[in-house]
Design a protein around this nucleic acid. Sequence first.
DNA 1: CGGTACATTGAGAATGCTCAAACTGCGTGG
DNA 2: CCACGCAGTTTGAGCATTCTCAATGTACCG
Lengths: 221, 221
Amino acid sequence: MAVCAALDDDDLGALEAIMTSKKLNANESLVEEGAPKQRVFSLTSGMLRIYTLLPDGRRQITGFLVPGDYLGLADDDVYSQSAEAVVPSVLCAFSAREMDMLMEKFPRLKERLHLMTRDALRTARDNQLVLGRLAPVEKLASFLLVLAARSEKHGGRRDLVHLLMNRIDIADHLGLTIETVSRSFTKLKTQGLIQLPEANIVEILSRRSLAAVAGMDPDAV
Amino acid sequence: MAVCAALDDDDLGALEAIMTSKKLNANESLVEEGAPKQRVFSLTSGMLRIYTLLPDGRRQITGFLVPGDYLGLADDDVYSQSAEAVVPSVLCAFSAREMDMLMEKFPRLKERLHLMTRDALRTARDNQLVLGRLAPVEKLASFLLVLAARSEKHGGRRDLVHLLMNRIDIADHLGLTIETVSRSFTKLKTQGLIQLPEANIVEILSRRSLAAVAGMDPDAV
DNA sequence: CGGTACATTGAGAATGCTCAAACTGCGTGG
DNA sequence: CCACGCAGTTTGAGCATTCTCAATGTACCG
């Protein structure tokens, strides 16, 4: 197993040399928006939520990190967002300075991170579409499809999603209240598109119909 | 004047060698989502809207490009979004292949584009906060402050914003209807925060209050 | 066997949307 | 030069949806 998931194989030796491991408990904070970016991270196991707070406490979770994801792509010298563990998590930590030096030394590592940054940008823009133009049930359907695709990519079943985050997290990610999230789950259940054997286990019964509900071209999924 | 705005001075000569100029009429399409990325662009004058469409016609404008902005940062081999001119615009066009080669040759150019990509990522995430957690008047206030900041950066007055886009564009950017956008303008006017001498000229009377309405810390502006 | 945290359901209120009409600025043609 | 039409914006009224507040349900843990 690649201890530090998904970084460039050639450079793994050099990476491991400067890496330290870090464990987080559930809901433990990792970085705070506005703090100097001294370290960057690669998530090994678990899940992180990346979020911004408004002065009055409203929260927008801009995304959830899964193993293989990198924390610090968007930031120059300060973190632009806060990050917390959703469940107990393990990360590889690197000094931001040393990582910068390593990137100069290993162009493929640099290229890899830039690829991930472009990917993150496309994802963020997809999220803008979801937040700005989808109705609640559509938002939830879209979210479940994203989670299912990730599950498949990590070797899981693409019709079975394990929700590591709770309803509050989902609501703060989709721009809804927890009640509306819950009602949206119920609607998808009633329509026969999903099953909820447990509150955080989703079985997708009809991928195509779910995609149609998500306001997408069903063939695009 | 830097013909191709805001690219690295050292590399300007090499850039100009591969560059061609392109003019667009208002509402003329530049690139379509899904098409192969054969060219990238730098906006010289005018304004572009970057957007995604849902199959049923709903539209999310993820951002507006102003002079100096670059089109193609997020894309690998296909455009991930469509782009159209808001007003008559002039751009520098580059072959994507030649630009890639130039990036290898001039590290500072590459670095510059990666910096712009990170910046775009932070902006996209800010937009997620706006779309997910702000009320209509807050969204509009936030949008006006962004435009004002850009106006200032380009040598204009920071309390005077010229809206090049129409209400439909604003609505599709903020996840609202045009009626709600219009009513939000009226509210900001009534509260004495802005004046609208013309439908597309906004005078900001109180920056701090506007920031407060936008759900931000007034000192952060 | 409570107790706690989380999720669901219900009822009423508030908000934003839909549909419709009026208003404004501007260009064209009588 | 004015009338007209057109595109864009604003305003109004009613409706649908989502949010708020409250209660109930459920699973897990000490």
